[in-house]
């Protein structure tokens, strides 16, 4: 029976399958959940495949992080997941001290990032996880955009011997990459080359940015599109090189414009190559219950908004 291609699967399924495959070959891989194992896909895929290495702590996210830290210090590689606000801001000090400061090899996964949590509304809609996790020493910050990149990112994290945070979109995503994709946190992915404007995207916004760049090409606007799966470390070289050629940068992310990818880009350019930047993202607001389409339009993140921002170069 032919296997379903990864890009036809929900990303949470890809996450859980990848963890099962990793755990099959590595007895140190463990999964720790806080009553959201079904939401992150590890129930039943991982919990049935490796029940002795599946731990559910109940609705106790800080405890999930602390238990993960203990397991990690003892040599295990725990993947701890929850919705992005509860995996990051709710437990920020537990991660800071028990994981990052203690250099405990814990992998933290924030699911349903930003506006993709639509029906759960403002309490669950976290626009600052990239920013706050980026501000933490000894923490990598990743936001994969499709199934292939997610699987590669999880595999890389399992091999990395230090803490890491990954945003995980749960649903099926448009295919961007394929099996040949190689995850490299040191390098941005150059999705399109052009000389008019640098478009910088990450995570869930990257497929929208790809579409915008394609439509702009038809208009005669040549976009240089950089996809950053890694917001930290940030590939400064590719950014500066592109900005030098185009002279204008647009960033787009499913996050607040304060401190996330847009913030990181501005930090680099202001020091290395002062360049005009337009940051697309949520402007200092909370989320709300709404459809993705409504929120994309409200916060100026739609393909049309991206195109408009790119034309203003």
């Amino acid at each position: 029976m032919a296997e379903t291609p990864l890009h036809e699967l929900e990303l949470r399924k890809v996450y859980a399958q990848t963890l099962v495959e990793l755990a099959d070959g590595n007895p140190e891989i463990v999964v720790v959940e806080a009553d959201l194992g079904k939401a992150s896909g590890t129930i039943p895929t991982f919990s049935e495949a490796h029940p002795e290495r599946f731990i559910d702590v109940g609705v106790a996210e800080a405890n999930m992080i602390g238990i993960g830290a203990g397991l990690a210090v003892d040599g295990f590689v725990p993947f701890c997941a929850s919705f992005t606000p509860f995996a990051t801001r709710r437990v920020y000090d537990a991660i800071t001290i028990s994981v990052a400061y203690a250099d405990a090899n814990v992998k933290i996964v924030g699911t349903a990032p930003g506006i993709t949590t639509g029906p759960n509304g403002g309490t669950h809609m976290c626009f600052q996880d990239l920013a706050i996790m980026r501000a933490m020493p000894n923490m990598c910050v990743f936001a994969p955009c499709d199934a292939y990149e997610l699987a590669a990112c999880v595999r890389w994290m399992a091999d990395w011997d230090h803490p890491a945070y990954m945003q995980m979109i749960r649903m099926v995503q448009p295919q961007v990459f394929d099996e040949s994709y190689l995850f490299d946190p040191q390098r941005a992915v150059h999705l399109r080359r052009g000389g008019d404007v640098t478009l910088v995207s990450t995570g869930w916004m990257t497929p929208f940015a790809i579409e915008a760049a394609e439509q702009l090409a038809a208009e005669g606007v040549a976009v240089d599109h950089l996809h950053y799966v890694s917001v930290k470390p940030l590939d400064e070289e590719s950014l500066v090189e592109s900005a030098r050629r185009t002279g204008y940068v647009v960033t787009v992310e499913n996050q607040s414009v304060i401190g996330g990818l847009g913030g990181a880009v501005c930090e680099v350019l202001s020091e290395k190559l002062p360049t005009r930047v337009t940051r697309l993202g949520v402007h200092d607001q909370f989320g709300e219950v709404a459809t993705e389409e409504y929120l994309l339009n409200k916060h100026g993140l739609s393909v049309e908004h991206i195109k408009q921002a790119c034309r203003e170069g």
Binding site: I55, A62, N63, I65, G66, I67, G68, A69, G70, L71, A72, V73, D74, P78, A94, I97, S98
Partner: peptide
């Protein structure tokens, strides 16, 4: 935070 880490050691 330490009791959670101790639970992790125990697990």
């Amino acid at each position: 935070q330490g009791l959670s880490a101790a639970c992790g050691f125990a697990m």
